[in-house]
């Protein structure tokens, strides 16, 4: 065989003529060769082409009709634009001073609410999460705990806050109860799922030593789920802080109440100060929690 460099000088039919018999000689033929297609496409998700196109066209029509049905009041948009600009202006000159007393009180209230609600929520979530893990709990306990989780998760924080404000009055107590309640649904569910995914062999090995149920929990389950439990608790801590700003609007205390008051009074510079502080605190918890999660892996 000559090198391709020398071949390029020859006429094109020559290499193909010499190449064919060489190939045939090199490859021992075990099977009769067939003509295989050289074109291949991934099979479509919906096999029936008519159904597929009908669905695509239907979705496109719905989108066009949906956009068409939006009624935009351009005069109102122009109005709001001006207000929006003032809001942005406030952001450029946030005023931390004139309402600092209110802001500080709101922030402290929010932080207290957040921390206490997270701690209490986590403490309640752990047994419920264990009860909601199919591989640890008997059926009746499992169903009960899953029921508690479903109730807690199906109610949005604001609705729960309104309920608790009605029950215990305005202020941070209602906020604390709301956040603790929401934490239970979130954390128990994720903890239960994590427990269900543990390596069963480790639990089996501990059980085989004659360990009791609690000892299996402590020696085989806890070490496997602890890093994630810590990570989720810290994550919930910053969710709770953000939520505390929202539920304050319906009267459950905290920095949300301060924010709401500032916006009601058109004091966008103070509102901006509150928002900036919320962002700063959320970022701080975010960074510190990711650092802690790395440490406990």
């Amino acid at each position: 065989m000559t090198r391709p460099a020398s071949r390029t000088t020859r006429t094109s039919p020559v290499p193909s003529e010499t190449a064919e018999p060489t190939l045939r000689d090199q490859a021992p033929r075990r099977h009769q060769s067939r003509d295989w297609p050289s074109h291949w496409r991934r099979p479509p998700l919906i096999a029936d082409a008519r159904l597929r196109w009908a669905l695509i066209i239907a979705v496109a029509c719905y989108l066009v009709l949906g956009i068409g049905s939006l009624e935009v009041n351009w005069a109102r948009v122009a109005d709001g634009w001006e207000r929006g600009l003032r809001f942005l202006g406030g952001f450029l000159q946030p005023d931390f001073q004139s309402r600092w007393g209110d802001i500080e009180q709101g922030l402290m209230e929010s932080l207290t609410m957040t921390l206490t609600a997270t701690v209490v929520g986590v403490l309640i979530s752990v047994p419920i999460g264990i009860g909601a893990a199919r591989n640890l709990a008997p059926m009746p306990v499992y169903l009960l705990c899953r029921g508690i989780i479903a109730v807690s998760r199906s109610l949005q924080e604001i609705i729960v806050a309104i309920l608790f404000v009605a029950m215990v009055g305005f202020g941070p107590l209602a906020g604390f109860l709301t956040l603790a309640f929401a934490t239970i649904g979130f954390l128990s569910k994720l903890l239960a799922e994590d427990i269900e995914e543990i390596d069963a062999a480790q639990a089996e090995a501990v059980r085989a030593t004659g360990a009791s149920w609690l000892q299996v929990l402590n020696y085989a389950v806890q070490p496997q789920v602890m890093p994630r439990l810590i990570g989720l608790s810290l994550y919930r801590l910053d969710i709770n802080f953000r939520e505390s700003a929202v539920i304050g609007i319906v009267g459950a205390g905290g920095v949300g109440a301060t924010l709401n008051t500032a916006i009601d009074r058109y004091e966008y510079d103070s509102a901006a100060a509150v928002l900036l502080l919320i962002i700063a605190i959320v970022m701080l918890t975010e960074y510190s929690s990711s650092w802690v999660r790395r440490q406990v892996q």
Partner: peptide, 17 residues
């Protein structure tokens, strides 16, 4: 069970302990 020690495929140690 205390009287029967068990040794496992893939060791089944509690990895984080």
């Amino acid at each position: 069970r205390r009287r029967m020690g068990m040794i496992f495929q893939e060791y089944a140690l509690v990895e984080r302990l």
